[in-house]
Simulated assay, not measured.
Amino acid sequence: MIKQELIALIEKKRAELIQVAITNGLSSSVAIRYSQELDHLLNEYNRTYIKKTHQLVSQ
Rank of each mutant, 00 (worst) to 15 (best):
residue 1 M to Y: 09
residue 1 M to G: 15
residue 1 M to K: 12
residue 1 M to L: 09
residue 2 I to V: 09
residue 2 I to R: 15
residue 3 K to F: 01
residue 3 K to L: 04
residue 3 K to E: 15
residue 3 K to R: 15
residue 4 Q to W: 06
residue 5 E to L: 03
residue 6 L to F: 07
residue 6 L to N: 11
residue 7 I to C: 02
residue 7 I to D: 11
residue 7 I to T: 07
residue 8 A to S: 12
residue 8 A to Y: 06
residue 9 L to V: 02
residue 9 L to G: 08
residue 10 I to M: 07
residue 11 E to M: 01
residue 11 E to C: 00
residue 12 K to M: 02
residue 12 K to F: 01
residue 12 K to W: 00
residue 12 K to R: 11
residue 14 R to N: 07
residue 15 A to P: 02
residue 15 A to Q: 09
residue 16 E to A: 02
residue 16 E to C: 00
residue 16 E to Q: 09
residue 17 L to S: 03
residue 17 L to V: 00
residue 17 L to I: 01
residue 17 L to W: 01
residue 18 I to S: 08
residue 19 Q to A: 09
residue 20 V to E: 14
residue 20 V to T: 15
residue 20 V to Y: 07
residue 21 A to E: 12
residue 23 T to S: 14
residue 23 T to C: 06
residue 24 N to T: 03
residue 24 N to K: 15
residue 24 N to L: 05
residue 25 G to W: 06
residue 26 L to K: 15
residue 26 L to I: 10
residue 29 S to G: 06
residue 29 S to W: 04
residue 29 S to M: 05
residue 30 V to G: 03
residue 31 A to L: 01
residue 31 A to N: 06
residue 31 A to K: 05
residue 31 A to W: 03
residue 32 I to G: 10
residue 32 I to C: 08
residue 33 R to N: 14
residue 34 Y to H: 09
residue 34 Y to W: 02
residue 34 Y to L: 07
residue 34 Y to M: 02
residue 35 S to I: 00
residue 35 S to V: 00
residue 36 Q to D: 10
residue 37 E to Y: 01
residue 37 E to M: 01
residue 37 E to P: 04
residue 38 L to Q: 10
residue 38 L to W: 08
residue 39 D to H: 06
residue 41 L to N: 14
residue 41 L to W: 14
residue 41 L to K: 14
residue 42 L to Y: 11
residue 43 N to K: 09
residue 44 E to A: 02
residue 45 Y to L: 00
residue 45 Y to W: 05
residue 46 N to L: 05
residue 46 N to V: 03
residue 46 N to F: 06
residue 47 R to M: 04
residue 47 R to D: 12
residue 47 R to T: 03
residue 48 T to C: 05
residue 48 T to F: 01
residue 48 T to S: 10
residue 49 Y to F: 07
residue 49 Y to C: 00
residue 50 I to S: 13
residue 50 I to E: 15
residue 51 K to T: 10
residue 53 T to H: 13
residue 53 T to L: 08
residue 53 T to W: 08
residue 53 T to C: 05
residue 54 H to R: 14
residue 54 H to F: 08
residue 55 Q to I: 01
residue 55 Q to K: 08
residue 56 L to N: 15
residue 56 L to I: 07
residue 56 L to A: 09
residue 57 V to E: 12
residue 57 V to N: 11
residue 57 V to H: 11
residue 57 V to C: 05
residue 59 Q to R: 12
